[in-house]
Amino acid sequence: MDGSIMPTRMLLDIEDLTVRFVTREATVHAVNGVNLQVQAGEVLCILGESGSGKSVTLRALMRLLPAGRTRIEGRITLDGQDVLSLDRKRLQAMRGGLVSMIFQEPMTALDPVYTVGAQIIETVRQHRGGSQRDARARALELFELVKIPSPERRLDAYPHELSGGLRQRAMIAMALSCAPKLLLADEPTTALDATVQIQVLILLRRLQREMGMGTIFVTHDLGVASEIADRIAVMYAGRIVEEGPVADILNNPKHPYTQGLMASTVHAQDRQADIAAIPGSPPDLRRLPAGCSFRPRCAAALAACRERVPTPVFPAANHMARCFRVAAEMGEGA
């Protein structure tokens, strides 16, 4: 393709993914042609505000969206398997085995009437079989791995008996129970206290490196992304508007939306200075504007932005932006 993709075999390859939610009243265009690759052992951060389609992309890739009213198009290849055409048996083997997911809110994401230990044991036995005793030993091992204090006792605790941080650790233990090749983390630190956030983030980064998992980390928090990511993909209105190595994106953002995100983040600015917010609000996904979705909020918009969706351009190696302004500047520079 465009030379941006490394020639090695990808762990995950998403091609032109489109997700629409169809109801009688309206069609919501949640994801509109997303291309993503993740290599084994690599951490990709998807950055974007609420409703930009980041969670939907993750859920589509595990086929967790409600079947009846969801239309998924495109191609998802995970470890050589075509995810969208897997039969039920293979899909179940894939979920939790090859790829697993950590959710934002561990309180509601764990079953309240089973102990956390039972929920991990269940997962282990689903994928690896074996006796209750072996699975429990594995669960204990996992609890030690995620640094839960008094792990033996905590296995028999119900989710509501644990603190938020411990719950999320238990959730991580469950996700890692069958050593997945790809870990999907859907804002795993958003619901936690600030101090706990950092602990969980450090834990995740350590585990990711030790286990060599490919990881997609969804967040709206630039700080989190800069801590953990190898690469960042910025999503807006169901499209990836900019993507590149973490240093490039943070230091040299090209797309006006990414630049706006950086400007609207609290750094060590002067206290008196107002934080620069991006004017306007994200578009209604039921009625996307023609052309670039960011155009109505963009100070740098060109005439072409109104007519067509910008095609990807590469201002630097492995650094992609979908923006006519960036393309024009590159033309001037050349």
Binding site: L64, M94, G97, M101, E105, A109, L110, Y114, Q126
Partner: peptide, 22 residues
């Protein structure tokens, strides 16, 4: 939400229903 977690960890639909019924 937890029903999505159950599916995400690869449980069969029967096992999911067992959780829901409890």
């Amino acid at each position: 939400d937890f029903v999505i977690t159950l599916r995400a960890k690869g449980l069969s639909e029967t096992a999911v229903i067992r959780h829901v019924l409890k």
